[in-house]
Nucleic acid binder design. Structure first.
Lengths: 392, 392
DNA sequence: CAGCCTTTGTTAATTATTTTAACTAATGAA
DNA sequence: TTCATTAGTTAAAATAATTAACAAAGGCTG
């Protein structure tokens, strides 16, 4: 039934049932006690007792009465998502994003700093400290109501010991980020890879809502993926899953051992930009999306742009085909630079896929933009520091 | 704690605890009641009660007393793995393999038929019926003690409805295998893809023992993979995971839509054999392992063989690199034709991998040979039809 | 608008299961 | 022989769910 030989006692049942009730309330509020009894398949007295207990603890609120369905009017209940809060934080290049969210994961207050230089470890940690202070002050949120911090950063993170184990781009390897920040801020911290958190964000609040089995692909400075299996983030044996920048796609060339991956060297944004320079000497070197430029120029009939565009679609499709054939996900979410290829680009990729693989997955664009990471960070904290432990 | 909002009552706790006790006994028998109390973190009276109940039901046996550890001698208990049995069955090309195993998954009786022609659906079903009859007669095993049948077949199987959804090689698409056999034999049936079952076999009894996070790769007539995540078989959204024969590795060429995959077309056994014919005109066309031949000839200094061998290693390594970068498995198990490459071949592949990816997974050869499938089938049945439900 | 049926929610008794504490049994070592 | 130790059991207490009965509140019908 549950596997892994875990045992339990009546306390476990109670916790399970409390969780069951909260779970329903988070998804389908407002609900009456009677509704909850039906949904959880618990008896009405049991639901009443647990609900009353949780109302006492402040986890649930009564929010008025509902319409009668031919009898006594139901007393509607809602999850008191304001009882506690969590912090989400994301480091990215030279910026730090911070947010305070409620227990539903809705971001209430947000803050962003941009530094003039790429963050080093010390700056980053100090940045979070100062950012949180500002956020608490401006919002008037009480720090004692914060359950913890979910923190996203580039590179491979070891969630267990809270360190960064591999990060060629930032040089933070070996940094004990979690411990440092926990000591400085006096709040529990959970760290995770930035792409994993974007995946979590899209899963809970974006294009992946309602889908328990998906792969999220991000193309930016690097290329990475996040995996949700059975509603749970899959991080791999050494927390290094989703490092698809290392897939063997495109020319292999010569490269230092253990540096950047082949796929990334050929089809990340910087790589495409470099190729574009050869094909489009008059290309816009601004921060404008390289894919938008390519598409525009291809529409104008420029053969070089058309050729490169097709090449990029083809190789991205290789990556997707590899992922789909191995994992058979319910849904694939495209993000980062990929969102700029539009419906036309997706169709081009789907056309290629249908030539190669028998089961073509559903493909959607990411819907949260650059908020995905911070929203994911918030949910990461909610997963790691559930409020129910507070009540006895 | 458990997620997914499931609820329960005291019955659930009891079942959980019974499972916990059985789980320990399956792994570490013989154990005393006191040992079990420590291992399961249940109280001694509780363990005693549950154990006595299961002894009554015939699930557990007392097997004498053990050495005293400074006090009263413990009464040793063992899981009564002979209480019931399961059947494993595998269809492969023109052969049917059948086995009866005990509750530990140890194969007790085995049977194999070879037909002169490739199996069609009707032949296969009749073959299982007759084979089981023979097996029951020869072994004297009582059919009423069989919990069910685990059945492996090539192609993509839908475990839910028990049909074959995709099988270009056998033409069994749409066949309601499960229902047919259940009706004919009066035993519950669970079906699964053959490579998934081999994976399960290696996981429970072979190279993957003790590793909860692995990918199994099979190269034979086709190329396929099986995935274990967190001790559970991962089958994907449409039960089509592990179809790595469709990875984009090697020349793409022209091919009918939705036929065989690119990787498979280039680096499966038939594909390699075809290439070998060009390089080695005097090659042995017998059933001898093509990799053994290649390696032998390469050792004799034949450049053509050496070149093809390196090419095969390189492209298999591409596949492995793709899998490892996406999934970060704890262990990779090589099987089928791959087991013939030996330590030397594995080293060659590992050397390539370490050039391309930062985290090279542990690699092992499959250890069960052609028994992997049938052993997996047996465990598949054990997972699907647990005996504990029998007792009340 | 009175009576009745329905839905919501609570109360009290019952049931299932675990735990705690105390006890018996068996054994090796001093 | 005695004592400390480990194994296993018994009886009472504790926890939490369910069942059955009831109270509260509202709509509908004649």
């Amino acid at each position: 039934m549950f596997g892994r030989g875990q045992t339990g006692n009546t306390k476990l049942v109670k916790q399970l049932n409390r969780e069951g009730i909260l779970h329903q309330l988070k998804e389908k509020a407002p609900l009456s006690r009677a509704d909850l009894a039906k949904l959880t398949e618990l008896s009405r007295p049991c639901v009443s007792a647990l609900v009353d207990e949780m109302i006492h603890e402040g986890l649930i609120h009564e929010v008025g009465v509902g319409q009668s369905r031919g009898g006594r009017k139901p007393i509607l209940l809602e999850y008191n998502s304001q009882a506690f809060g969590v912090v989400g934080a994301v480091f990215e290049g030279s910026t730090i994003q911070l947010a305070i969210a409620d227990l539903k994961g809705e971001v209430r207050f947000q803050y962003k700093t941009r530094f003039t230089q790429p963050l080093d470890g010390e700056m980053a940690i100090e940045g979070v400290e100062r950012g949180l202070a500002v956020l608490l002050e401006q919002s008037g949120f009480d720090k004692s109501r914060l359950l913890g911090i979910g923190l996203g950063l580039p590179g491979i993170t070891q969630r267990r010991d809270g360190t960064v184990s591999y990060a060629p781009s930032t040089g933070w390897m070996g940094l004990p980020v979690q411990k440092e920040i926990e000591e400085r801020l006096g709040l529990p911290v959970i760290i995770d890879n930035d792409v994993n958190l974007m995946t979590l964000g899209e899963f809970y609040k974006g294009a992946g809502v309602g889908c328990s089995n998906l792969v999220f692909i991000y193309v930016g400075t690097g290329i990475g993926a996040g995996i949700m299996i059975d509603g749970q983030s899959y991080r791999g044996a050494m927390e290094a899953s989703g490092e698809i920048g290392y897939m063997m796609i495109g020319p292999i060339g010569k490269r230092g051992r253990g540096e950047f991956g082949v796929f990334e060297n050929n089809y990340s944004v910087p790589a495409i930009r470099k190729k574009a320079r050869l094909v489009l000497p008059d290309a816009d070197e601004s921060s404008m999306s390289i894919m938008k430029q390519l598409i525009e120029q291809a529409h104008q009939g420029k053969a070089g742009a058309r050729g490169l565009l097709d090449d990029v679609y083809r190789h991205w499709a290789y990556g997707i085909a590899n992922i789909a054939s191995l994992m058979d996900p319910q849904l694939l979410i495209l993000s980062g630079e990929m969102v700029h290829i539009g419906e036309e680009g997706v169709q081009a990729i789907l056309r290629l896929l249908s030539e190669w693989i028998p089961f073509v997955p559903r493909i959607k664009m990411a819907s949260l933009g650059d908020q995905a990471g911070i929203i994911g960070a918030v949910h990461c904290a909610l997963e790691a520091f559930p409020s129910r432990l507070k009540g006895k």
